[in-house]
Amino acid sequence: MKKAYYITRMGRLERKGNTLFFENEEIKKAIPINSVSEIHCFKPVTLTSGAIKLLSEKNVPVHFYNKHSYYRGSFLPREPSVSGVVVIKQAEHYLSGEKRLYIATQFVEGIKASMLSLLKSKGANCSKLEDIEVSGQTPEELMGVESQLWREFYSLFSGLLKHFSFNGRNRNPPRDEVNAMISLGNSIMYSVALTEIRKTYLHPAISFLHEPLERRYSLSLDLADVFKPLTTFRVILRLVNRRQIREEHFERDVGVLLNGEGLRTFLGEMNSELERKVFHPRLRRKTTLRYLMRLECYSLVKHLLGDSTYRSLRAWW
């Protein structure tokens, strides 16, 4: 199974022979390109023409983030999986109000189920969250329901944190430690979702819950939101409550951000969570959370083609 590779220092990626190297004034490190799913750069990194060619040959995207860990953009090799039929069907389902509403509803149902899975595993009283009905006549109304779900989720999540206070979501930039970690984790999930979508026939810019806009891959937002409670927020709880992340792992600039040590700690735990295996009852074998994201894409493709009806993830672990 291929894994993500994270770069937390300034430098450059270059090719020597058939090997990719990360280099700066202090280190020169080979990157196992054949076992890498994607590369995440959290500091300025230069890609040489040789590195770009090798990354393209191996179909390894590179995602870039700013100093506050917000997603800035990606180097994306030529799409490995292309199907005009699927893209046409995807556009048809977006243009049909009824078909789009069904898929958007499924995404919100999946988000709610993931929230409940995490919170109930920690013993939280989820009665108010459970009572929120997922329904709407338009995607905009469903986005309103999603916002309501997140507000209740944040309130319950705050009560589970032992060593940091969290009084709701803020961003651009985050003003406290928990929001800094949420922004980082959510950005990673957006990029991972984009990587997994590109391994299927889906077009990442045609979405159903979020509105497609220029300069963003909005289907990645639809998919990532279903998995964020199971990844980003699970990791934050573990790191905070076990004191693996503490106040000294943050710095204040314009807003709050993780310092170098804190960033590496968070990324290591996030990667472990994405590679964590759970038993899949339908496949009758264990699979990683990362691969579950791709299975969601495959299920959506089958729905678009009329082979089966899409039902979003209902976390069972």
Rank of each mutant, 00 (worst) to 15 (best):
L129S: 03
L129F: 06
L129E: 05
L129W: 02
E130L: 08
E130M: 11
D131K: 15
D131V: 00
D131Y: 07
I132S: 10
I132G: 06
E133S: 07
E133H: 09
V134A: 05
V134P: 01
V134N: 06
S135P: 02
S135N: 14
G136E: 07
G136Q: 09
Q137N: 11
T138S: 15
T138I: 02
T138D: 08
P139N: 04
E140R: 14
E140K: 15
E140P: 03
E140Y: 06
E140A: 10
E140L: 11
E141G: 09
E141C: 10
L142Y: 05
L142E: 00
M143L: 15
M143Y: 00
M143C: 06
G144H: 11
G144A: 09
G144Q: 10
G144Y: 11
V145F: 02
V145T: 13
V145M: 05
V145G: 10
E146Y: 09
E146Q: 15
E146C: 13
Q148A: 13
Q148E: 07
Q148H: 12
Q148M: 10
Q148P: 00
L149V: 02
L149E: 04
L149Q: 09
W150E: 00
W150G: 02
W150L: 03
R151C: 06
R151H: 14
E152I: 08
E152R: 15
E152Q: 15
E152S: 13
E152A: 08
F153W: 03
F153H: 01
Y154P: 00
Y154A: 05
S155R: 15
L156K: 14
L156Y: 14
L156C: 13
L156Q: 12
F157P: 03
S158Y: 07
S158K: 14
S158C: 11
